[in-house]
Design a protein around this nucleic acid. Structure first.
Lengths: 332, 332
DNA sequence: TTGTATGCGTTATCAG
DNA sequence: CTGATAACGCATACAA
């Protein structure tokens, strides 16, 4: 804070009233004679008084902040979610405290606890910590909610979208194009979204697909690096866990002279802005990011209000976007 | 905060000591007998005591937070800067409060002031507000610094990189490739980096280049939309204000069937991760983002320590990265 | 080394 | 409608 801050007492003294009155005026709602209120406001204005949120926080027990924990800030996917949350939060005078776990799921409980210290409520975006940790966190810190993870049987409110169905749909598309051997470029296995996506791919075996599981990751570089192994599996289509991974894969494929989609099909997931600008544009699934964030904030509101959140809400749905990165099985 | 929080008094009572002792133990440094300290720690641990940062903040006058204001969170460029700041900050127990102005430079002073309310110091990333506002801000809020803007004559510490030289170098490259008519796809004119880049392009006229100024923006979409006008100018090379803009332009060019670099050359600026994955990969300038963030934090440290920051520091330099998006002037 | 007491800037409860 | 004054949880100067 600045060196010599103007405090409520300064305003009170200058206006010739008690600090209680100033406090009332600043809060707007309570009963103060119009004339007095005006005078106080004028003085406050002139002195450049701004209520100290720290002091207010101590007095009210509320910080006016919501904490948000994301796995990585690099992924554009989270920006829109964060943006949507912030849009709602700002409208009600809340600020967001953003923390990034950089994929280290072991650090998540600590980071979340730290957010708790500063914020009234915490939103966990795609948390990867085990159920147990999540449960422990929820017990002593009730104002918690999850985005994009189903904390089943833990009693934490959540908002999430369905990854399974669109991924199954993608598999169906590839199947109808004649593909059999496909490779799933997997993200981290502690990511709920990833396991859901892999579940869909592996279950597509029931429809004749032969999926290979290739460990990769959620980033451009991991996608790039996973391509060689994926090709060794004999796959004619690569199903990336997300768009970043697909973009990396695309780059490696180009380096190797493999044409997409003529020689090989490729899909992503998320539909980040860049996905439609790649060459060729990516077939992917459009995740309702804005809706996710908007609902998250609404949910947080009711959590903050102490309302019992319904723990049984439907999953949002993601829409498959077909672009030019997939094509028929090339003749052998 | 949680409903029933464990306070310092709880620990004191349980351990049979005064709160002062507990306070001392929690801070680690001050003199407390080893035995007592151990007992207090044990009790604190058992009770799950975590010092309330709000109360501590009120007592010490420090919040343990640094505020960071960025124009837009969407631009990957800022992530690394933020990340580097956070890396340093975290090491010293500071948290970052991130706010986004979404390009509305008029809102920046308010947002910055709001950050001030919650944080010990504020870092303005590429602020676009006019010098006057910046000056006003600096007067009553001394713990301020700018990243990527030269607050000349305002007395605000800063760390920035040189956009002018690499841009001039890019112009030189294009000139040697035979290009004459070039179009600068401009970002916002209140962005210091943008005006520096345009300054370089326009001064390249001295070397025979004929630059057209095309208003665009810093985003993929604005780059996309600006292409048509740029082509009407008769340019054989497009110089985008940043990579996002270039990526958008590339997409539009592809839609129009204009081949890069055979028919037209294109450059970006920043060298975000995507820049090397486009088709063709972008010629651009690699900005020392990490260094920018790291230095920013170091600077903030000295600002927080009340040390007089030197206001005359050299600009960091950005390196031109030549990739396949530029080529010789096509024969007419 | 330890405890007591005061203050940090607000809010909120109670009297007037 | 307004003014004292007690919290809020912690740090710290001062005493012991």
């Amino acid at each position: 804070m600045a060196g010599t801050r103007v405090t409520i007492s300064d305003v009170a003294r200058e206006a010739g009233v008690s600090i209680a009155t100033v406090s009332r005026v600043m809060q707007g709602r309570v009963s103060v004679s119009a004339e007095l209120a005006e005078r106080v406001r004028a003085v406050a204005q002139r002195l450049g008084y701004r209520p100290n949120p720290v002091a207010r926080g101590l007095a009210t027990g509320e910080t006016g902040m919501v904490g948000v924990l994301v796995p990585e800030l690099d992924n554009p996917h989270y920006h829109e979610v964060i943006k949507a949350i912030a849009a709602g939060a700002e409208l009600q005078g809340y600020r967001m405290l953003i923390l990034e776990s950089e994929g280290r799921s072991a650090d998540e409980p600590d980071l979340a606890a730290s957010l708790y210290d500063h914020a009234d409520g915490v939103i966990l975006c795609s948390p990867r910590m085990p159920d147990d940790s999540l449960r422990r966190l929820a017990v002593d810190r009730p104002r918690l909610l999850c985005v994009n993870r189903l904390p089943t049987g833990i009693g934490i409110p959540f908002v999430a979208f369905d990854s399974y169905s669109p991924m199954l749909e993608i598999c169906g598309l590839l199947g109808r194009l004649g593909h059999r051997r496909v490779a799933y470029l997997s993200g981290p296995m502690d990511s709920w979204a990833n396991t859901e996506r892999w579940r869909a791919v592996s279950q597509a075996a029931a429809f004749g697909l032969e999926p290979a599981f290739i460990p990769a990751g959620y980033t451009i570089d991991t996608g790039y690096d996973a391509v060689d192994e994926a090709l060794r599996s004999g796959a004619t289509a690569l199903i990336a866990a997300n768009d970043l991974c697909a973009i990396g894969a695309l780059s490696r494929l180009r380096d190797r002279g493999v044409r997409v989609p003529q020689d090989l099909s490729l899909t992503g997931f998320d539909d980040i802005a860049f996905a439609r600008r790649t060459v060729p544009p990516l077939t992917t699934a459009r995740v309702p990011r804005h809706e996710l964030g908007a609902q998250a904030w609404r949910l947080m509101q009711s959590v903050l209000a102490g309302e019992p959140a319904l723990l049984d809400r439907p999953l949002l749905s993601a829409e498959v976007i077909v672009r030019e990165s997939i094509g028929p099985l090339p003749p052998t």
